[in-house]
Design a protein around this nucleic acid. Sequence first.
RNA 1: GCGAAAGUGGCGGAAUUGGUAGACGCGCAGGAUUUAGGAUCCUGUGGCUUCGAGCCGUGGGGGUUCGAGUCCCCCCUUUCGCACCA
Length: 825
Amino acid sequence: MSSDGNGGYQPSEVEAKWQGRWDERGTNRFTSDALQTAENRYYQLMMFPYPSAEGLHVGNIFAFTGADVHGRFQRLTGKRVFEPIGFDAFGIHSENFALKQGIHPMDLIPSNVANFTRQLRQIGGMFDWNHTVDTTDPDYYRWTQWIFIQLFNAGLAVRKEAPVNWCPSCMTVMANEQVIAGRCERCDTPVEQRRIAQWFFRITEYAQKLLDNLERIDWSEKTKKAQKNWIGRSEGAILHFPIQDRDGSQIEVFTTRPDTVFGATYMVLSPEHPMVDEVTGEDQAEAVAAYRKQATAKDLVARQKVEKIKTGVPTGGYCVNPATGEPIPIWVADYVLMEYGTGAIMAVPGHDQRDFDFAQAMGLPIVRVVAGEGDGADTPLTEAYVGDGVMVNSEQFDGVAVAEAKPAIGAWLAETGRGETTVNYRLHDWCISRQRYWGPPIPIIHCEACGPVAVPEADLPVVLPRVEDFKPDDSGVSPLARVEEWYRIDCPQCGAAARRETDVSDTFLDSSWYFLRYPSTDHHDVPFDRELVRSWLPVDCYIGGNEHAVLHLLYARFITMALHDLGHIDFDEPFIRFRAHGTIIREGAKMSKSKGNVIVPDGIIEKYGADTFRTYLMFLGPYEEGGDYQDEGIQGPHGFLHRLYDTVTTAVDLENHEGSRNPAVADPDVERKLHQTIRQLTRQIPELGYNTSIAAMMEYLNVVRAGGRTAQRSEVEPLVVMIAPFAPHMAEELWEHLGHTDSIFDGANWPAFDEAKTRETSVKLAVQVNGKLRATVEGPTGMDQDAAEAAARSDENVARYLDGATLKRVIYVPNRLLNFVVEQT
RNA sequence: GCGAAAGUGGCGGAAUUGGUAGACGCGCAGGAUUUAGGAUCCUGUGGCUUCGAGCCGUGGGGGUUCGAGUCCCCCCUUUCGCACCA
């Protein structure tokens, strides 16, 4: 249905025409040679999509369009822009959907990819379809496996048994980053803890570097902050508490407050702590066993409830406070987590609220070791005191300020081997095993004699076999373990019978290196061509959602650092610049299938065209914040593009009819506005200020058309270039109409502005009396204060307010305002 | 609970960073053209108003300043991170 009443702009025709031309001419594609020889390179990357069965949603289109606008703008300024796209198609999401539909993912994914490709072409992205990736293609995951092997050989991939997060609904383990408030990020099921041997990447080795490098990359502050918090560096000390009556046995605790050690009146072990049995006395054995059983049965949500009343049992064992030499009881309680620090704490109830609550509940002693302002050594505590003060009840350290006591007590304990200062991170090693089917098999062969052996690189890929029964189960073992003919294999080292690793790797591994692959998809013998990587990477501008702030973005940085240290690439940060786009809501509410308020892009593109849709999405709010999609709102950009089309075609027609008989006379108002508009867009588009850029173009077009005037070529040709990043098809069409034969993205230059021509010749000056607006007067730009005052005083209304008052002061801001400060007499 | 960001017309959102609040657009109202229109084109549109460039107005309350949406303090609300992290 065309809403066009004047026979002009027909989006569907224009868009089909130009998508066809781009394809035929290879406008957006790089040949293998071009990738190698291009100058002035710019790598514009957007987070690649997961190709769902539903097709692209508005959020995808919003995200991709914003990135595409940026890429197209860069191209118009003379860069050779590489803007690839691909598909992140492995993972539990696809697998679950396949299970639900009863379609094998190997059949499902290709049709999803085909549909996404169709839609991505339809929205007019400047994608290089010669260089796409599909993470489920053996030609791609072969190299995902290769990366695993590089890390394995470097000791950065280790198999260890540790408490891991188990989602009972997805029936697989998951990384810490994938657990949100104790629940599975995918299905919201409360996550359990299990002890299963898993493959981990030792990302913690890079904790400090991941933190330090944040200082020098151009990323949204929000995202950097999220990473910083996730890494969670904290400085403190490991203190050794000898177990009473057990020679040489000791328990280590991590604390950020070694200064309060004199106040440690008991110790708490996490229920999972390996030394629980050792310290538990006979009398308590049964109670401790019961408590541990109950604690491990609880899921993480239940266990991590802060408000819940603290529980725990005494072990009957004692250890010695290394500062006081006094014995203190050892308890087991689930408020201490095995995953953080050493899984054991020294409890200082006087100065830690959690310990305080526990001590009160259990009747344990509370000792004050820090006195705040006005407190004495024995001032009773009604809650934990965490403020500043001086040490008390701490023997030789009494009277020392907390700030000095921290290093002093730390040093004192270190001297005598009772502890050492240390840095602890909240970040954990990255668990990459998944007991599922739809992922790249981890390229390891388990041999009784040799242990885990990497699959020889020449044997890659380890192809995921097509199996019909790929449903996961609760056993903690991957479905691939059912495929005997696949997992039976000889050890590549000793030739003995061995078996393949049957776990597959985390989807986040697939996406942690795809940006390295894009320029090298023509190369089948290497994961990435060294020269291409050197010349195209790191990525110049990366755009994606902030929901990946601590998942994908952290992993991609880690893999980049590891590959750098292993000598495969020469940079250690993958993305020079990262910006997160916002999210789109609809008429004040989140879009969701259950509410039935999801926008179906296909229908909108059919009705209004991709250019209008793109322009509207970029117009409805600041790109980095997102905005509210109001169904009626699209009328604005729709009308704007129609008017623009008419204005340009009319100008060209007129030129053709009248030719040089009617030489163009520059209209100073239009020319000034044009240069102001160019200036604004030139500054704002690189900063992703799209909504205001579009508003500026609308303003300009309004000036061009004011009073029904007809435009001249020189007034609209630059506007056609400026609209091109937003409405590329229409810009091409108008560019052709203006007499050009090649693509606007090859033939046009981003217009330049002349600062002199942006200057207003006259200004409206606000005239205030005591800060209240009383008049505006017009005068030449840059008039001096005397002239301004004279003009202002001659205004009737101003004069009325100045009459009979004493002038105290005059504030003059040239070209802006004049403020008379008066006092009534 | 901690951390961050944000609260501006009927709505989405602007505001050169301390200088005429409400750009641009939607919606609405009036008009033109039209067989018709959910098309196109003008005009108007924060509230109150004694219609005066008068008063009020950027979540609420205080403050700094000639002047505050913008800076400072307190409070409220919303959104998003993190959440027994020792």
